[in-house]
Nucleic acid binder design. Sequence first.
RNA 1: GCCCCGAUAGCUCAGUCGGAUAGAGCAGCGGUCUUCUAAACCGCAGGUCGCAGGUUCGAAUCCUGCUCGGGGCGCCA
Length: 618
Amino acid sequence: MSSQTASADPIELLESAFRSAIAGALGDDYAETDPIIKASQNPQFGDYQANFAMGLAKKLGRKPRDLAQEVVDALDLSAVAEPAEVAGPGFINIRLKPEALGRLLDAMDDDELGVRPDPDPHSVAIDLCGVNVAKQMHVGHLRSTIIGDAIARIYERRGRKVFRENHLGDWGLPIAMVIDQLRRAGTDLDRLTLTDLDRAYRDAQLSAKADIRGLARAMESPHAGPHRRAELEEQNASAHEAVESAKRTLVRLQQGDPEIRADWEKLIRVTMDAVYESYELLNVKLGPENNRGESFFRDRLTDVIDAFVREGVAEEDEGALVVRFEDRDRPLLIRKSDGGFLYATTDLAAVRFRVHDLGATRVIYVVDARQRDHFRDIFDAAKKIGWDRTADGAAAELVHIPFGAVLGEDKRPLKTRSGENITLRSLLIEAIERGTHEVIRRSEDPAAPTHGAPLEELKRTGKAVGIAAVKYADLSSDLVRDYVFNFDRMIAFEGRTGPYLQYAHARVCSIFARAEMDPDSLREVAVLPQEPAEKSLALMLLRYGSIIADTARSLEPHRLCTYLYDLADAYSSFYQQCPVLKADDPSIRGSRLRLCDLTRRVLEDGLDLLGIEAPRRM
RNA sequence: GCCCCGAUAGCUCAGUCGGAUAGAGCAGCGGUCUUCUAAACCGCAGGUCGCAGGUUCGAAUCCUGCUCGGGGCGCCA
């Protein structure tokens, strides 16, 4: 069994051994040299390699191979590895002994599975989802929600306190316009449907556009003669009136008018009820407790402006208040010339709150890539005024995860055939239907483990499969890239997909089901990987902790996705080549069962961090 | 016009701090089933790492210029 202090990560072990060897060979001045230990790409070069010799030799004006040999001579790895070998221009190859692999696997065999706690005791704030009140969730919200949830799970897994911050668009003129639109249309807000809301939102947006952009632009046009101008003004009169009316409603909302306030709350309830339903379908850990939207910050905006003025970080420009930056022309506007606030003002209030009040040393914005420039401005403005420091003085890092767009087969943003946005709900329903269809169809095979399973279970599994398909497809490539949404490809049970990983997990489960044994009874059985396929699997298992640390640091969930596939792949090869239940020797059988058990637990844990369920049979 | 991002096999994508012969999946071709779940495994084939220079013992990776595609750019959010 594991001790609390032993690291299960061979890389850490090798790093410290090499550091002492380098210090021993070259003197204590070199004790801090990074030995650059990496897992070898090719088994012919051993399990791990140390790549420091070439760079260091250059600095010292020496031959890399000589230097490498000198360090190898000072190296004592006899307890864990075969003698290290110098190869090529100066690589040092290391091959671990089976007994060492066994000990390391023992060390990771507890609930942590080799994942070490994050040393930073501060919290993390993650801005995700970002729904707008009066608007259905659409595919645009998909990525922010599932990426944000996965990153939150990974930080929580490393022991950090995570605040999932759902920065709702629940305040300001857009909402007032919808309320106003509904009231003028005489809609009964107690019988309000999402469709009503959608229509009102769209109509309100059209009015605003016609008024603010259309008229202003057309009137400035040199081609607009007096006749044309009169015509335009007439056309825009109703739009203009709509916006004026909405502005009056906004004032009443801001002043706390009970009637408007009650309508506002009804809007939020209708919107959020549907949103919570989507969260349930998506299997994300989000709920009312995560809502902290624009309305939450509305009373703090004046303070933001005051602070920027007081600290001399903002200045007036054409009546507006702006923050200027040394390295770019365009300033950040934080107050309009009419005295109104902008979304930048709210975002600055949110930065202040997350760092100062929530004590987060990492504030992560999971918002699409189009807002890159905006967040750069916000972060730089926050730094200028010193809001990147927690109350206890720790430096806070503000990070934007600029994810790419979800595209249709035509490489344009995903829309329905008629050009409407696809609702998130309809997309998830289709994923679940497809998953359920597959699971039920396969259960009809009399040889299938799910044959005869209750329909309830099949449906539950089908939902898990459909959602896994969508999530894995979304999380498995570099987030910054756009990707083409393709159901057929992502739900395939072959290849790098969510369902394949779930299947790999279910296959391991079936071994224990067939053996009718409790994996916990294996705890005292020795694990000793000897066959090449066993060793590969063991090495893969031992990487788990560092993969989780890398994923948290880099905020790149696709690293974990790639790893889990590689682990499933290593397991499949092992499973093909090494009989487990049919192994003649009981000690080999026990050792292999422990490899199976560890694989199953890492797959289940890793999938959970991606927000993907791992059914025991499918 | 200015700024940002992307380009790797037919298709979809990995590629760690610059390291050994650039790797997967899908599609294609050929094998392995009285199965430990074949939703699998093994093998073959497939490359101007967008282009041109540069730095380096070593470049898909770093620097400069360019091409193509996408996005953003002061009083909307």
